[in-house]
Structure formats: structure tokens, C-alpha cells
Design a binder for these strands. Structure first.
Lengths: 194, 194
DNA sequence: ACCTGAACACCGTTCAAGT
DNA sequence: ACCTGAACACCGTTCAAGT
């Protein structure tokens, strides 16, 4: 029967989780779906666009909610990190899709962070930059974290040790978020040197 | 005559500047050097390692100097961004090499930023994270900036408009750096919410 | 409208064999 | 020690032709 966009994205996500981003190729995906490679190009203009759709699927669970700006940004960051960590190479894939401007959900998320930055007192002209700074941090941190995590997973694995490392990473992650929150809250104080 | 590592890196940089990262392939590089593709693998274990060497060459000009921690971090950030912008796809290449842990110079740079973070009063246990946060920002910002810059360069180009955009980007860049500096300087104040 | 088959123009990497 | 030649096992994308 007919191939639909969501079937393709579904199969791509499964492939990603099972074998990682290096094996998420158009040809391999087509094989998994029992279609010819060319069939995918009826539904997606190119690979970047398909990866963008996968990124959006990964980010489905990341929800916004209102509340004080610090709490709001904190939750968005945690939600984003959690979503990235729940798929093999999720951080790398979303990071690439964001840089390529192919993830609508990342654009939405950026919008929410921008609103929160305005609430924090960041001048509107710089609020999006403050939001981008937060996104750069979360993506950078999580790409790094996930690559170590997946590298370690190939070695010995005491489940205690695993979760201890994860908890430590969570605390470290939170600390970085605090640095950004504090920076935003004093965005107009402190004169520039140099 | 004999092929040396530095000849390979030199040719790779030229290729990068002329045609961008997508055309910086092992085969194309070998062709440019009039050797067979296999020859490159005598000098470099794989493509990642070669790109790491190119990244280090791009970062050659980024110098550290002592001074107050704010000034020091500010200069390192500016030096890094300038170096990235002076080669086609420089930000993307260095960003990938940093994530892959293949750039010694990025590791050095991280060390200097960590020292400065300690001077700022960040607890030593978190100083490297603060430094990484700065690096994530500079790389994220510049990858974004450079992709827009190179995209625009394909369109109409009044030289005035170009430099006006660059100046605006520089001011925006500085603002983001200030946010991080301010965040670091209050790293131990402000209670956590949530 | 949706897909196949086949081609085009490539990749990174390995490795026996040569000098 | 350093490099060639040739192979292995792939890629993303296009497009006439089919249904």
C-alpha cells in the first residue's frame, strides 16, 4: 500500500535508535520500507528535509508551560535534553537540523525561550540572541554528553555506575543553565571592559 | 618528491577556502596533490584526523594573553570567531573537529578559558563546564553567522551592506559574550528555583 | 499521483604489491 | 618507509518510464 510521510519518519526513527545516525541513509531507509530509493524523493525534497522531520518527531515531547521565566527556561532546557538523550545520536541529529534550519519545533522552542528572555528583562532586540545562546548550550552540552555515554556503553556497564554518571551530568547541566539564567538577569548591568 | 603532513594540510586548507567543506574529500585532496587516495592514509589514520589538523591550522592565530578574566575571555572569543570567519566553512569544520575531540588547539583554548573561569570565581569543579559553555556559544553563533554570510554572498553584494551586517553581527556577538561573563561572575549567588 | 529501474557521479577505507 | 592500483562496500540524487 501507499507510503506516507509519517511511515517514513517512523521507520527512520527506528533505524536511528537501532543503528545510529551513520546508518540512517536514504538507501537503507528505502530498503527497510521495501521501496526504491527514488520513492523517498516523492515525499521529501532531500535528506536534510527528512532529517528535519525526524528531529521534529524527537522533539514532540518537549512542552512549554508558563510560569516565572527562570522556571520556564529551566523546564524547556531539561525537556530538550531529555528528548535528545532518548534517541541514539538524538543530540547530533537535532543539532544538525537546527543549524540547517530544518526543524520547525526548534524554531518554536526558540520562540518560547525568546519570550522568556523578554520576561527576564533582556532588551527585545537581543532576546532572540539570548535564547539562541541557551539553545547552543543545551545542544553543545548534550552532543558531548551523549557521545561519551554511547562510547561508554560499548565498555563495561554496571547499571549503578551508569545512573551515577547520568545524575552527575544532570547536576552539571543544571549548573550551566544557572550560569545562563544569571547572565540574562543582569544583562543590562555591568559595564563592558575592553 | 615526498609528501609531508604539512603539505597535505596546506592543500586541504586551499581546497576548503576555494570550494567549501563539502568538496574537501580525501579523493579530491589526493587528486590535487597528485597522489593516490591511499597515500593520505599513510600520513593520517582517517578523515576525521586530517580535518582535526586543518582545524588546528585555522586556529593557529588565536592567541592567549593574560589580563583581567573578562578581558581575557573576551579576547579569546573574538580571536576564535575571527579565525573561524577567515576560512570558508571554518566554523563548521572546527565545530565538528571539536565535537570529535580531534583539535588540540581547541583543547588548549578550553584550558585557557577554564583558567579564566577560575579567576572569575567559578568553583574549580565547574570551571571547565563554564569554559565549554563559552565555546558552545562562540561555535554556535559563528556557524550560524557564517552560513548566513555565505548564503548572502551568493546574492547581490554592496560592499557597504556587507560590512554593515558584519558590524551588527560583531555587536550581537559581544552582547552574547557579556551575558556569559555576567553569568559567570554571579555563579555562586542566586538560589535555584524549581 | 506515486513509484520503479537504472543510471550518474561520486564517497571513505583497505591492502597486496611495488620501489 | 612510502606510495600505487585496484578493489570493496557503499553514498545522495535524478529522471524517463511505468501504473
Amino acid at each position: 500500500m501507499q507510503l506516507h510521510k509519517r511511515d517514513v519518519v517512523e521507520a527512520a526513527t527506528t533505524l536511528l535508535d537501532s543503528f545510529g545516525i551513520a546508518d540512517l541513509t536514504m538507501r537503507r531507509l528505502a530498503r527497510e520500507l521495501d521501496v526504491s530509493p527514488g520513492a523517498l524523493y516523492w515525499h521529501f525534497a532531500n535528506k536534510q528535509q527528512l532529517l528535519g522531520a525526524v528531529a521534529d518527531r524527537i522533539l514532540e515531547s518537549v512542552a512549554d508551560a508558563d510560569g516565572p521565566w527562570r522556571v520556564r527556561i529551566g523546564r524547556l532546557c531539561t525537556g530538550l535534553r531529555d528528548a535528545l538523550l532518548s534517541h541514539t545520536d538524538g543530540a547530533e541529529l537535532v543539532s544538525a537540523s537546527f543549524a540547517a534550519g530544518q526543524s520547525q519545533r526548534m524554531t518554536e522552542l526558540l520562540g518560547h525561550l525568546t519570550d522568556a528572555a523578554v520576561d527576564a528583562g533582556v532588551p527585545v532586540g537581543q532576546a532572540e540572541l539570548a535564547a539562541r545562546t541557551v539553545v547552543y548550550y543545551v545542544l553543545g552540552f548534550t552532543v558531548d554528553e551523549q557521545s561519551r555515554l554511547q562510547w561508554d556503553a560499548a565498555g563495561a556497564e554496571l547499571p549503578d555506575e551508569q545512573s551515577a554518571l547520568t545524575d552527575d551530568a544532570t547536576a552539571r547541566f543544571r549548573f550551566g543553565v544557572e550560569v545562563l539564567l544569571n547572565g540574562m538577569s543582569v544583562a543590562e548591568r555591568e559595564p563592558m571592559l575592553d
